[in-house]
């Protein structure tokens, strides 16, 4: 019915094209103003958190290990949407009211931090012990060996799984629409609520997400090739 009407009724087809055209810009605007900044900020903060958490997990200090373990366990054991709701709708009960965008950045950063910490921890552990020893043997301290020898190599190992996390994050930001961030999918919802063309508008949103992720996977390939030059 829906599809055949496009072919039999030229007026309807024209109307749909018009809607697709006029809704494209507001959605792209949502992507540029919110989806992309939200993704980038959360990923950067999340990665910093992830490296710290990974280092805490492999440290010999029991307290650090414990804190890192509990953090990862809580974030991995609860739904992201629930975490976002607690931050945005729950914290005001404690007198902490945050801007929707900031709430989302906090929620996504915590999430990336927990998941990526496991990736980074595994990558650090995958570097042969001889690399640490070679660093120590030329007089390096733990920190120097970590920063100069281990982390650069671990970074290379982490690129494929971290790219996966990054691409997931792009799509997960659509959850921010539920804590009132006017990111791309929120725009789509508003547009569709006005004209009832749910299939058209949401498909259009899906295509934009897909194009974004497509470019990211090209970027991933490029990075992998660059980092592979020395092996």
């Amino acid at each position: 019915m829906y599809l055949s009407s496009i072919f039999t009724d030229p007026e309807r087809a024209e109307k749909l094209i018009e809607i697709a055209k006029t809704s494209l810009w507001p959605m792209l605007e949502g992507a540029i103003m919110n989806t992309i900044p939200l993704t980038l900020l959360s990923f950067v903060f999340g990665l910093i958190l992830a490296v710290l958490t990974a280092l805490a997990r492999i440290s010999h200090v029991k307290l650090f290990q414990g804190i890192a373990r509990v953090y990862v366990s809580i974030i991995r054991g609860t739904p992201l949407l629930v975490q976002l709701f607690i931050i945005f709708y729950g914290l005001p009960n404690l007198g902490i009211t945050l801007d929707p965008f900031i709430s989302a950045v906090i929620g996504f950063s915590l999430s990336v931090g927990a998941y990526a910490s496991e990736i980074i921890r595994a990558a650090i552990l995958s570097i042969p012990k001889g690399q640490w020893e070679a660093g120590y043997s030329i007089g390096m301290t733990y920190t120097q060996a970590l920063r100069r020898i281990i982390l650069p190599q671990a970074a290379r190992v982490s690129v494929p799984p971290l790219s996966n996390s990054f691409i997931s994050l792009v799509k997960d930001t659509s959850l921010a629409s539920l804590v009132l961030v006017t990111e791309m999918f929120r725009r789509a919802q508003v547009i569709a609520a006005r004209n009832y063309e749910f299939l058209l508008v949401y498909t259009e949103a899906a295509i934009i997400y897909w194009v974004l992720c497509f470019f990211l996977s090209i970027l991933q390939q490029y990075m992998e090739r660059r980092l592979d030059r020395y092996v």
Binding site: P128, A134, S137, M140
Partner: peptide, 28 residues
Amino acid sequence: TGMVFQNYNLFPHKTALENVMEGPIIVK
């Protein structure tokens, strides 16, 4: 002491020159 390992343990992400320069720059 200077140590030479059975399986070399060179830093694979650094060139031969950078491997040799690393200690003097970072440690010394």
